[in-house]
């Protein structure tokens, strides 16, 4: 029963939406579930690891340290959203810290299993990576928006009169 429920969930996840039933079944068998308590850290910025996570339940906070114990929240991810997709590709240390904002459950797909799956069905792999590309594009747009928002915040918070400065 659990596998069926999981399959229904996986079909609703954007990156897996185009995969056929057999492939999705094979993927579901390779996913490892992990539960997290509120406040538990999935991984920290700088950690090693090439696993891809899919949020099954709860919300996860993606943040970057800015000062002492203070981190800036970059994103809040809910069910069906991916975590760790950047390190999956470049193999570099984690670019941000991910913390469970509430009790949460995630599915983990490690790099070896992903490779096995992509080798088994190049067509399914193409569909998966196409969807992943769309996720990256959306994240990139969001990053641009966030940069602009942070700049606006900085200008407003310091009272910097940029418009007058430009006229000097």
């Amino acid at each position: 029963m659990k596998a069926t429920a999981d399959l229904a969930f996986l079909r609703a996840v954007g990156v897996f939406a185009e995969l056929d039933g057999a492939y999705l079944q094979a993927l579901a068998e390779r996913l490892r579930p992990r539960t997290l308590k509120r406040g538990e850290v999935l991984f920290r910025e700088g950690d090693g690891g090439r696993e891809l996570y899919v949020v099954r339940a709860g919300t996860m906070l993606v943040s970057k340290p800015v000062l002492g114990h203070v981190e800036q929240v970059l994103a809040r991810l809910g069910p069906g959203e991916l975590i760790g997709d950047i390190s999956l590709f470049d193999g570099a240390p984690r670019s941000a810290t991910v913390t469970a904002e509430s009790d949460a459950e995630v599915y983990c797909l490690d790099h070896e299993n992903l490779q096995l799956l992509t080798e088994a069905s190049p067509r399914a792999a193409a569909a998966f990576f196409f969807q992943l590309g769309k996720t990256f594009s959306a994240r990139l747009r969001e990053s641009g928006r966030l940069v602009a928002e942070v700049t606006r915040w900085g200008l407003e918070a310091t009272g910097l009169d940029v418009e007058s400065t430009g006229r000097h």
Binding site: V70, Q72, V73
Partner: peptide, 9 residues
């Protein structure tokens, strides 16, 4: 006004 979300450990 602009808002930032901060996580304080």
């Amino acid at each position: 006004d602009s808002r930032l979300e901060l996580l304080i450990r």
